[in-house]
Amino acid sequence: MDYDWELLGFGPDGWGPVLLRAAGVTVAVSVTAFLLGVVLGTLCAWAKIGGNRPVRAAAEAYTVILRGIPDLLVIYLFYFGGRQVVAWAGGMLGLQGPFDISGFAAGAIAIGLISGAGQAEVFRGAYHAIPVGSLEAARVVGMRRFLMFRRIIAPQALSTAIPGLGNQWQSVIKESALVSVTGLVETMRQVTVAAGSTEMPFFFFAAGAVIYLIITSISGLVFKGAELWSQRGQAPARL
């Protein structure tokens, strides 16, 4: 089978521009979800480390539940469940349909929740890796909890957490493909459309896979760089 590579180009018949845009949407939904995950993961790790019994139990339940349910199902719940809630609320207010919610928002929230559960474990592990003496030295010079968190705990924990966060980010990118079920035109959705209209599914799904590989590879390099940067000075000097 011969392929017309111009299909991927930017000419009149080329899918280049829409694919590029779709890749942008993939990155955007992933970044949104990941940042939501950072916030939830931090709170959850904090709850597990420093919370009282009920707070700990709630954080534990959150991680167990979100790690025990398929990602696809979580997205379905937020998207279709969200629509059901909106329709019900609209009906109560006497509004006329049709009602819809944003696939971007539902997808980003769903993946953010999933990622938050994973990131909580990453942050918790990173906290426990901080040398106890380093915290003691901070207490003995009179640092209060918040200052100690900001100046001593967070910078050290973050540097330990970077590889784990990198893995979480890679998962988020791959999970973002599932958001295509909501109709959001990200990479997965766009290549499905292209595959259908050109009747060249292998070509376009392969192209889609390559787009994901490019995104994950570049992110991998970025996280590796961040890891090296954050560990400057932490390992013994190589002479």
Partner: peptide, 21 residues
């Protein structure tokens, strides 16, 4: 807290902050 900022404590295991020069 006030007292701690007016005392200097030196630990057996140094306890320098590894992420600061």
């Amino acid at each position: 807290q006030r007292m701690r900022t007016r005392l200097g404590f030196v630990f057996q295991s140094f306890n320098l902050w590894p992420h600061r020069t």
